[in-house]
Amino acid sequence: MEIIEKISYFVLPCVVIFVGFIIFFGKRDYFSSFSSGAWNGAKASVKLLPTMCALIVGVSMFTASGASDFFTKLLSPVFDFIGVPSEIFSLILTRPISGSASLATFKEILDACGADSFAGLCASVIMASSDTVIYVICVYFSTSNIKKTRHAMPIALFVSFFCVILSCIVTRIIFE
């Protein structure tokens, strides 16, 4: 497991240094492309605020009203059975539907359970290794007149369900 740790620490610095080299040795002014890209990134994240505000208010209402605890308790036998911590129930629900909604629930889970808890780790792996399935399928086929998506949705949903279970198994093996 130590090797995993070492590889992981190298990935991001390598990318940054690589970009540093390009900027230093490149024939063109790559720093200006860096700043234009960075500015776009900054704008994109600030644009998230209105959606995030609404969704985080919604999610924290859901938690504060006790509804989230109620469902977590109700479903915990099922989740225990498949080896998934029941605290991440809300993430499993929102992840396929919307990127910002799942980001909001993800943050809520990290706040509530702690980032280094088993639930927090599982939530992180799920968040990073699956995408907004329903949204993707609807949008990808939207512009090109395709109405029958055949087996796209069932396979995509199956894969994202499989991803939840697999994430918990892999997290357990690597971190415990």
Partner: peptide
């Protein structure tokens, strides 16, 4: 909390946007 979240994302999204553009 939503403001906290967005502010915490601005830094990394800015850096990443720049890196990808290069």
């Amino acid at each position: 909390k939503s403001v906290e979240l967005v502010i915490s994302l601005v830094g990394i999204m800015t850096l990443w946007g720049g890196i990808m553009e290069v």
